[in-house]
Simulated scan of single mutants.
Amino acid sequence: MSDIYLRPTGFVDAPFGFDGQVARLAGGMVWFSAVEMLSRDRPARLVPVADMPPLLKEDAALAVCWRRLTEARPALELGPRTLRFDQPQVMGIVNATPDSFSDGGRHGDAEGAAQAAFDMAAAGAALVDLGGESTRPGAETLWEDDEIARVAPVLERLRESGILMSIDTRKSAVMRAALARGARIVNDVSGLTHDGESLRTVADAGAPVVIMHNVGDPKTMQDAPRYDHVLLDVYDWLEGRIAAAVAGGIDPARIIADPGIGFGKTVRHNLELLNGLSLFHGLGVPVLLGASRKGFIGALSGEAGADARLGGSLAAVQTGLAQGVQLFRVHDVPETVQAVRVWRGLRDAALSPAH
């Protein structure tokens, strides 16, 4: 295994006229002209894409990482819906909880939560993520039957809606209950580590899964988190969890990685991860960014409350768009969809020159 990590950088608007000098990032709408070579024991260095071929011939592990960076991510065929990763997509958040950090209590009944999902889909969300347990910093673990009681009636109302739903849970029993009621994707903030049965549950169901990086549990994760090198530590943890998932029978083409902004990270850690997001394409799977209304935005904006962080949330989305992130988990769906569409319009214009 190579001890070198590749972070794409030097992004360009379009590849025209740069044959051999740029590469396409993960089959998406972003091209890069250089990579930052990172290592734990050597200084970083910047290498132009044009200089990479001989290095890839010399180092097989580096060649594998390069292939992962540049190969297209296959779409997910999920019943009547297709989730594509060749362009950015928006995942709306619906928390059927009384105590989530931003929207706790807003969707307190099943009818209200289902209506919120309808509204997000109508506003352009490609899928909606439903949660029944708060995982905010300091939150206590919820009994699985109580969590099922919160999400099951919402999913039952949405079963025939055609809305692509994911279930945000750490518990295998909740996963099974949600998948049986029409959820198609599992989003596990523990990276399939909280429940010893969750990996097998996902594998047996053949469901796609979001594996998120986390340290500890919600109650303790913000107790002075520390890393040797946050970018590389998070990358290595995700790579290990992806390998464990594949070894446990999960199709690698059905795995999505999330660096876990705000989960066991300080403000500085979050900012370093956001600046280095393009590194995570080296995992070879689509990347999800969940920075919406997170605490670091408040910390950088006069301690603005969770409901006053739209501008910072959109800034984080823009950072992800510029680095090829495929999926954005957000509270503010209409505003984020608009931002993504404008970005997409800019990319389309760059890739369709008038002369």
Results as ranks from 00 to 15, higher is better:
Arg150Cys: 10
Ala149Arg: 03
Asp188Thr: 07
Asp146Ala: 12
Val189Ile: 15
Trp237Ser: 15
Ser198Cys: 11
Ala177Arg: 06
Val234Ala: 06
Ala180Pro: 00
Tyr227Gly: 06
Ala152Trp: 10
Gly138Lys: 05
Arg150Ser: 10
Ala203Arg: 00
His229Asn: 15
Ala180Ser: 13
Ala205Gly: 11
Asn187Cys: 15
Ser198Gln: 11
Gly196His: 09
Asp228Ile: 10
Pro218Cys: 11
Ala149Ile: 05
Leu158Lys: 05
His229Asp: 14
Thr201Tyr: 06
Val174Asp: 00
Leu164Phe: 04
Ile148Pro: 01
Thr169Met: 07
Glu197Thr: 12
Leu199Pro: 04
Pro153Gln: 14
Leu231Pro: 07
Leu192Ala: 08
Lys219Gln: 15
Ile242His: 06
Ala247Met: 09
Ser190Asp: 11
Ala224His: 15
Ser172Ile: 09
Ala178Lys: 01
Gly162Phe: 13
Gly248His: 10
Glu147Ile: 06
Leu192Met: 13
Ala178Ile: 12
Leu232Phe: 03
Ala177Asp: 12
Ala173Cys: 13
Ala205Ser: 14
Ala224Asp: 14
Glu147Leu: 11
Ser166Glu: 04
Asp146Cys: 10
Leu199Ile: 02
Arg200Tyr: 02
Met165Ala: 01
Leu142Met: 10
Arg150Gln: 12
Val234Lys: 02
Gly240Ala: 13
Pro218Phe: 08
Arg241Tyr: 05
Leu164Thr: 00
Leu155Pro: 11
His229Gln: 10
Ile211Pro: 04
Gly191Ala: 14
Ile242Ser: 06
Arg181Pro: 00
Thr169Phe: 04
Pro208Lys: 07
Pro153Trp: 05
Leu192Ser: 02
Arg200Trp: 00
Ala180Cys: 08
Ala243Ile: 14
Leu238Glu: 07
Gly196Lys: 06
His194Ala: 15
Ser190Lys: 04
Ile242Val: 15
Leu232Met: 12
Arg157Tyr: 07
Ala177Lys: 02
Gly240Asp: 13
Arg226Ala: 14
Ala203Leu: 04
Val174Cys: 03
Thr220Met: 08
Val230Phe: 00
Val215Gly: 04
Asn187Arg: 12
Tyr227Cys: 06
Arg176Phe: 03
Val209Leu: 08
Thr141Tyr: 05
Asp223Met: 14
Leu142Cys: 10
Ser190Ile: 09
Asp146Met: 05
Gln222Ser: 14
His229Arg: 15
Met221Arg: 02
Arg159Asp: 01
Ala152Gly: 08
Ala178His: 03
Thr193Glu: 14
Leu192Arg: 03
Gly206Thr: 04
Val151Met: 00
Met221Gln: 02
Leu179Cys: 12
Val186Leu: 08
Val210Gly: 02
Ala224Ile: 06
Val186Asp: 01
Leu155Asn: 03
Gly240Met: 12
Thr201Ile: 08
His194Leu: 05
